[in-house]
Design a protein around this nucleic acid. Structure first.
Lengths: 300, 300
DNA sequence: CTTGAATATAACATTATGTTATGAAATTGG
DNA sequence: CCAATTTCATAACATAATGTTATATTCAAG
């Protein structure tokens, strides 16, 4: 048979209070409403639930067995309500984030810590890897969100691009530190630490030297801006890196100066196109984007 | 918030089928009915449950979490239905029976075995003890049912009296075995095994001798008819016992003959007056009474 | 036996869930 | 790219479930 929650409520309240009148009060309805609910319930289940003894409705033996199981039904509904509230308030769920290695040890952990602090029921998987794997995971829906760069698009992903400002970093005490802005010409005699030669950002950087009538003196090729920061912070060379990464190394042996022309480093936040829409993931992406605001290039 | 089962059903069916139309079919209602249930549910819980992808309604991440918990709600309702059916069919519950010691090892176990065979979910406590304890337990509602004798009533108990026929038992081969009916006069020279002197049954027995102008030759006083049967079965004396007990010893060295006058042995089935009415207990009592029919005195 | 309290029932009202009809949106196939 | 088909959302109305007030019945207490 199909149970009706209202009948179960009437049943439980009557057993608890010993009276139809008191059950009605506790349920916030009139006494005849409870009387009818109980009568209908008893007919539906096929046996009596109460008998009157000295004016008190006493549950039958069958009713006592039913009450135990009815309590379990309401407990499971209580759990459902707890979950509903957590989901509505986004305080429960699981986040799976794939990111470039540089992100796993810098800005992102701080953003995540703050994000999770307010969400005790939320758990996280954070997986650093190279861009190819990040894309692969997002396409396969193994991760909810990927943070990568140099990404040109894929039909199975939904992408949000963010342009991050870049800056020139020099060893502390470097003579060029006296200038307000560094031009490619200024760096003609500096040993340059730069990202992969064929990366879109490096191509743009090389072009900026050419357009300023200067030649970039290539020294070390690195895979991450954070590696470039570490090298320059040890007193050697110069580099153009994202303002985000430079900020993490501001007091680690480097000077930061604006670079002209303004080159932008393009980050991409990826989500699986076919994945289940998650409010929690959308919340996180918003929080992450907000955290990047100070580093976003103005031209956009 | 207060959940509505119909909304949970609509939600679960839609997630399972990927379509409002198919969900409506599986629920046996029209498509707009499901559409409205889902819309109302989504509004009530405060977040979206589905998004359309390639024509298929895909649960959101929140919806997936909810589905797990909704399944548990329906599982608990399934358990409730199982219990309801068992209770209605009296195939579940617990029986607590207190009886005289003689009953625990004779007729009653057979009745119980048969009763429980058809009720796999029913469990039992069978406790033999003396009449005073049986009454005490019934009054205190520690047992559902007491089977006792020589009981004259108590306001806290509900009682069903059953008059059992009594018969005369003699050792096998006894000369009186040639008679169709035994009278007190026939037994004047026999050593009598009888119950407690002051028991109502024994008082009636003694009176029957006096009224026949005979003197009862008292030999051994026992507490149970079964003990009297054992003694006579070993070739000594005669006794008047309940037909029920005599039947158990029919092939154990005794001859059974009607006794005139017809004396009745009064059994009482007790139930707590204030206890919870149990269909299972009432069923058992009915089964027990039916099992006694062959031994019931005709005068009633 | 009377009075008061509790429960059951009747008649009507409101809400939840159902229907058919239909418009809007999305998908599919040519 | 457009037409046809399918699916979903909404409107208007119907039915069932649950609510109300009024009142009859039953039970308990003094």
């Amino acid at each position: 048979m199909k149970f009706k929650l209202r009948q179960l409520e009437a049943f439980q309240a009557t057993a608890k209070t010993g009276s139809v009148t008191r059950a009605a009060k506790s349920l916030g309805v009139s006494q005849p409403a409870v009387s009818r609910l109980l009568a209908d319930f008893s007919t539906a289940i096929g046996f009596e639930l109460f008998e009157r003894k000295s004016g008190i409705l006493t549950p039958t033996s069958e009713a006592r067995y039913m009450l135990t199981e009815v309590s379990r039904v309401f407990e499971s509904l209580d759990h459902l309500e707890d979950l509903r509230r957590d989901l509505k308030e986004r305080t429960a769920g699981h986040l799976r984030i794939a990111c470039l290695p540089g992100f796993a040890t810098s800005h992102l952990p701080r953003v995540l810590t703050e994000f999770l602090d307010n969400r005790p029921g939320v758990t996280l998987t954070l997986e650093p890897d190279r861009p190819e794997r990040i894309l692969e995971w997002i396409i396969g829906q193994q991760y909810d969100c990927g943070i990568t760069d140099g990404f040109s698009g894929h039909p199975a992903t939904e992408r949000t691009d963010i342009s991050i400002k870049t800056v020139c970093i020099l060893p502390k005490g470097h003579p060029l530190g006296a200038k307000d802005t560094i031009s490619p010409k200024d760096l003609e005699n500096e040993k340059m630490v730069h990202t992969r030669r064929d990366s879109p950002f490096n191509v743009a950087l090389t072009q900026s030297f050419t357009q300023d009538g200067a030649r970039m003196n290539s020294w070390i090729e690195v895979r991450q801006f954070t590696a470039a920061c570490t090298i320059v912070g040890e007193g050697h060379g110069a580099s153009i890196v994202s303002a985000l990464d430079a900020a993490q190394y501001a007091d680690r042996g480097i000077i930061i100066r604006p670079f002209s022309p303004n080159l932008e480093h393009k980050l991409s936040i990826l989500r699986p196109l076919a994945g289940n829409r998650s409010l929690l993931v959308l919340d996180f992406i918003e929080a992450f984007q907000n955290s990047l605001k100070p580093f976003i290039a103005e031209a956009n």
